[in-house]
């Protein structure tokens, strides 16, 4: 019961902050709402006894990536209005298409989740809370080794790309 209340309150916060991120006019405020959003998501992870994920969410997203967002927003002059795009109509169609794709993906995930048998419930929760880090470590280096390595390669490629963009005459 308490968990359900906490879940719905947190979800309301997450959605509210998400709406504020896209609706507020001031870009720095938008970034701050994004931080609050991430913190609420971290609280949701704690509710699911995934403390490791929660801490990593705060460390990497709220504390790392959004700081860089803030740098960019503060250093780029946003006082002037955005330039007129050549074809706003076309852009909005791309936007609609992408949102449709995301919605489809969500629908598939939810549909699959309702068909698939429910995972082992609260019986393992205390175990999960005690050995959170160990379990994630085991999973990452056994069952999910290839996705893990691919993700790290992707990050490496992004880093090399950023350096090449920043230093053209290296």
């Amino acid at each position: 019961m308490n968990q359900a209340i906490a879940f719905y309150v947190l979800s309301a916060f997450i959605l509210g902050f998400a709406v504020l991120v896209v609706s507020t006019r001031n870009t720095v405020h938008a970034v701050l709402y994004l931080v609050l959003n991430f913190l609420a998501v971290a609280a949701l992870y704690v509710l699911l006894t995934a403390q490791f994920l929660a801490v990593i969410q705060v460390l990497v997203y709220a504390g790392g990536i959004v700081v860089l967002y803030l740098f960019v927003v503060m250093l780029v002059n946003l006082k002037r209005p955005p330039e007129d795009h050549s074809a706003p109509q076309r852009h909005s169609w791309i936007g609609f298409g992408l949102s449709g794709l995301v919605l489809l993906e969500l629908a598939v995930i939810i549909g699959y989740g309702s068909i698939a048998p429910p995972g082992p419930a609260n019986a393992q929760n205390t175990d999960l809370a005690m050995y959170n880090v160990e379990k994630i470590g085991m999973l990452l280096y056994t069952d999910y080794l290839i996705p893990f390595e691919v993700a790290s390669m992707l990050l490496l490629v992004a880093m090399v790309g950023a350096i090449i963009l920043a230093k053209r005459e290296l």
Binding site: Q51, F52, A62, V67, L70, N132
Partner: peptide, 19 residues
């Protein structure tokens, strides 16, 4: 069970105050 990481992640929030 994630005490040390908790400290690191909370400390990383403090940067916002300065910026």
């Amino acid at each position: 069970n994630v005490g040390l990481l908790y400290i690191v992640s909370v400390a990383s929030i403090g940067v916002y105050g300065i910026i």
